[in-house]
Computed example of a mutant assay.
Amino acid sequence: MKLPFEPYNHEWKLTYSNLEKELLQILGSLKPVVAHIGSTSIEGLSAKPVIDILVGLRDESQLDQVPALLMAKNYIYYPKYNEEMPYRRFFIKLKIPPQRLSLPLQFGKGDEMPDIMHDHHYRLAHIHIIPVTSSHWTRHIAFRDYVRSHPAVRAEYQQLKTDLVKQEWKDGNDYNDAKDAFMKRTEKAAVEWYTQSH
Score class of each variant (00 low, 15 high):
180 D>L: 06
187 E>F: 01
184 K>G: 11
189 A>N: 07
165 V>I: 14
171 D>R: 09
174 D>F: 03
161 K>R: 05
170 K>T: 10
168 E>W: 06
174 D>N: 09
187 E>H: 01
185 R>D: 15
185 R>L: 15
160 L>P: 02
189 A>R: 10
186 T>H: 02
160 L>H: 01
174 D>R: 02
181 A>F: 07
180 D>R: 06
163 D>F: 09
187 E>A: 07
164 L>D: 05
166 K>A: 11
185 R>E: 15
188 K>I: 03
161 K>H: 04
162 T>H: 13
160 L>D: 01
159 Q>T: 06
187 E>P: 02
187 E>M: 11
173 N>V: 10
169 W>I: 02
173 N>Q: 11
188 K>M: 08
189 A>P: 00
175 Y>G: 10
169 W>S: 01
170 K>S: 09
167 Q>H: 09
182 F>W: 15
184 K>A: 14
163 D>P: 01
166 K>G: 03
165 V>L: 11
166 K>F: 03
172 G>C: 10
184 K>H: 14
161 K>S: 05
162 T>A: 15
165 V>S: 13
164 L>C: 06
186 T>W: 03
165 V>C: 15
189 A>F: 00
164 L>I: 05
162 T>G: 06
171 D>W: 11
169 W>P: 02
169 W>L: 00
159 Q>C: 05
178 A>D: 07
168 E>P: 00
170 K>P: 00
173 N>R: 10
163 D>W: 05
183 M>C: 08
159 Q>V: 00
184 K>P: 09
184 K>Y: 11
172 G>F: 03
184 K>I: 10
162 T>E: 14
175 Y>N: 09
182 F>N: 05
183 M>G: 00
168 E>A: 08
168 E>D: 14
159 Q>Y: 06
176 N>D: 11
187 E>S: 06
187 E>G: 03
172 G>L: 03
178 A>I: 05
171 D>Y: 09
172 G>P: 06
171 D>S: 12
171 D>N: 15
174 D>Y: 02
185 R>Q: 15
170 K>C: 03
177 D>A: 12
178 A>G: 07
171 D>K: 10
164 L>R: 03
189 A>D: 07
189 A>Y: 00
188 K>Q: 13
179 K>A: 08
159 Q>L: 13
168 E>N: 12
180 D>V: 04
186 T>Q: 04
180 D>I: 04
165 V>N: 12
169 W>T: 02
171 D>M: 12
177 D>E: 14
160 L>I: 01
170 K>R: 11
179 K>Y: 02
